[in-house]
């Protein structure tokens, strides 16, 4: 799966989690850029990503996440 495809599918997950369709994901997008992105939303994003991409993240993966680009790389490593 290409990174572009991961971004596209991740954007759908963000739409479902934040109930908005105007979020543009870039590699440096972080919690500071999206209103309401708190720890519970983070759980929703990650747990949904696990199910939809069919991957399982380790605690080390999760502790290293600071932005969308990190999440995309973590998914790419696990696919």
């Amino acid at each position: 799966m290409t990174q572009a495809e991961i971004y596209r599918r991740l954007a759908e997950i963000f739409e479902d989690v934040f109930l908005r369709d105007d979020i543009v994901l870039k590699p440096h997008t972080s919690a500071a850029d999206i209103a309401g992105w708190d720890s519970l939303k983070q759980i929703d994003i990650i747990s949904t990503a696990q199910e939809r991409f069919g991957v399982t993240f380790t605690t080390r993966d999760l502790d290293g996440l600071t932005c969308v680009g990190d999440l995309v790389r973590a998914i790419a490593r696990r696919i």
């Binding site: 519970l40 759980i43 929703d44 990650i46 747990s47 949904t48 696990q50 380790t58 605690t59 999760l62």
Partner: peptide, 19 residues
């Protein structure tokens, strides 16, 4: 949503308990 979160956090909890 709540069940999905709980399943994910259970998995993380078990991993953290081991390490």
């Amino acid at each position: 949503r709540i069940e999905r979160r709980a399943r994910f956090l259970r998995q993380k909890m078990l991993e953290d308990l081991r390490s």
